[in-house]
């Protein structure tokens, strides 16, 4: 019955496994600089976390595809990429079993219940992250000390949300934030490494420039306006760009194809909206990592943003 339908389907329009595989390979390669930097920085905990996440994601996905009688599609590397991405946004020292729970939720609730990759309306990695955040808030805020003599063991964005912008300037320099010499999760600490990965993705045309650029612009402009209005009460825009997972959201989370709009206008609105909401949640809301919530919240509006203009071809 469904074969006869001539309808416009949601992205990605990938029918041969090859292009999806190539895309996922690019995404995985783009995450490598940040991963390697994390291993150098935090040590064996990152290796352990990444291995557990990637292997368990492959196992859960294989099991669910086998149980539901579908063709095994582990070769498309999506499980590898999403496992790696999840590992990078979790605290390095997280207990092993919470990572297993996270990857199970990622595969099952994020993807398989909707019929696999491509049909998921929400970013599966973020679904897992939010579920873990809600279930194990204590573990999710336990950081490893990155340096022998750290100024603080809190992540920069935590210092901002709990103590206010004045303290941030005291503890962290822009260089530290840019290079990644702070506590936090692997995929947040080094803005530089993520920028390298993002640049690679843009050069390979794996991602469209509209979402990352408009997302970063949204964060920068919105926080900039408030910073100019009342210095002291609000953090400066550069801090908002460099800390709290803004970079990884811009290049790796907000660019998940199935859960984001496909029209040029839709993409720009998605990026701007999520960027603004990121700053709103960080400044007035209850969550330190507003960047992730903002992207996930805007996933919900994707069907409406897509209706604004016709599909863009050759994305």
């Amino acid at each position: 019955m469904s074969e006869l339908k001539l309808t416009v389907t949601p992205s990605p329009h990938v029918h041969s496994g090859n292009s999806l595989t190539a895309m996922m390979r690019d995404f995985t390669i783009a995450l490598l600089p940040a991963t390697i930097f994390g291993i150098y920085f935090f040590g064996a905990d990152v290796v352990r976390g990444v291995l557990i996440a990637v292997v368990s994601a492959l196992v859960w996905e294989g099991l669910s595809q086998w149980l539901s009688g579908r063709k095994l599609e582990l070769g498309n590397l999506h499980a590898v990429f999403s496992g790696l991405l999840l590992a990078l946004i979790l605290p390095p020292g997280l207990p092993w079993w919470t990572i297993l729970v996270g990857t199970l939720l990622m595969v099952l609730l994020g993807k398989e219940v909707f019929g696999g990759y491509g049909s998921n309306p929400f970013n599966s990695v973020l679904v897992a992250w939010v579920a873990l955040q809600l279930s194990y808030p204590d573990y999710m805020a336990q950081w490893i000390l990155p340096l022998a003599d750290p100024a603080t063991t809190s992540a920069p964005m935590e210092v901002f949300t709990s103590q206010g912008p004045a303290f941030v300037r005291e503890y962290f320099s822009y260089t530290d934030l840019f290079l990644g010499r702070t506590a936090g999760f692997t995929g947040q600490v080094s803005a530089l490494m993520l920028l390298i990965g993002g640049a690679y993705l843009l050069w390979r045309k794996t991602i469209n420039w509209r979402i990352p650029v408009s997302y970063l612009a949204g964060v920068f402009l919105f926080s900039g306006v408030f910073w100019l209005l009342g210095t002291g009460a609000y953090a400066d825009p550069l801090f908002h760009i460099l800390a709290g997972g803004t970079m990884i959201s811009a290049f790796f989370l907000a660019t998940d194809l199935p859960s984001t709009p496909t029209t040029p206008q839709g993409m720009i609105l998605f990026g701007l909206g999520a960027g603004i909401l990121t700053v709103i949640i960080r400044t007035w809301g209850a969550w330190t990592f507003g960047a992730f919530y903002a992207v996930l919240i805007f996933n919900m509006f994707t069907p409406f943003l897509d209706k604004i203009a016709p599909e863009v071809y050759g994305r």
Binding site: P10, V113, G115, S119, V127, V130, L296, I297
Partner: peptide, 26 residues
């Protein structure tokens, strides 16, 4: 889309509502 048979209708609507609830926690 290609939602599995057993998930069609109420189950998928409820699970989506749950995930929306997760979003609204933000």
């Amino acid at each position: 889309g290609k939602v599995p048979n057993m998930m069609n209708g109420f189950p998928i609507a409820l699970i989506s509502a749950g995930l929306m609830g997760l979003c609204f926690q933000g």
